[in-house]
């Protein structure tokens, strides 16, 4: 398999917001990301819309094409099917929610074309 999923997606992982507040990964809300990015001097939240989901190089991988930000830049990422993205107003979502829940005990919705995910860019970047 390509890469192991990072440990912070495990249910119960402690996440520090930009204002110092600690939350569990499963308790994060859309506002937590928005407010943290507002405080950040370097990072900016972008809306990344899922345009396509295709099979990846290995059976447990997918290639997700996003349309990023106001400029609608097309960006492809290859991830494991269980990799969770945070969808605005919905929360954690992955291409295979059952597997995400099985591996990380993290409740997930199904990531679909048209979903708008939270992503980051650098401030001041064009």
């Amino acid at each position: 398999s390509p890469v192991a999923l990072p440990p912070f997606f495990m249910r119960g992982s402690i996440i520090q917001l930009a204002d110092g507040e600690l939350k569990r990964v499963e308790d994060l809300k859309t506002e937590d990301f928005i407010q943290s990015a507002e405080i950040s001097s370097e990072l900016k939240i972008d809306s990344s819309t899922v345009e396509r989901i295709d099979n990846g190089q290995s059976p447990n991988a997918v290639v997700i094409q996003f349309s990023v930000g106001e400029l609608k830049a097309q960006v492809c990422v290859e991830v494991l099917v269980e990799y969770p993205f945070f969808v605005f107003g919905q929360g954690w979502s992955s291409c295979c929610p059952d597997r995400t829940t099985q591996l990380f005990e993290l409740s997930c919705a199904k990531l679909c074309v048209g979903d708008v995910c939270v992503s980051l860019t650098l401030r001041g970047m064009r």
Partner: peptide, 19 residues
């Protein structure tokens, strides 16, 4: 207990080509 920064959790998506 490890504490992870919020920005680890969301992908950094930026166009690879600049204009």
């Amino acid at each position: 207990v490890p504490v992870f920064p919020w920005h680890s959790l969301v992908p950094f998506l930026a166009p690879t080509q600049s204009d």
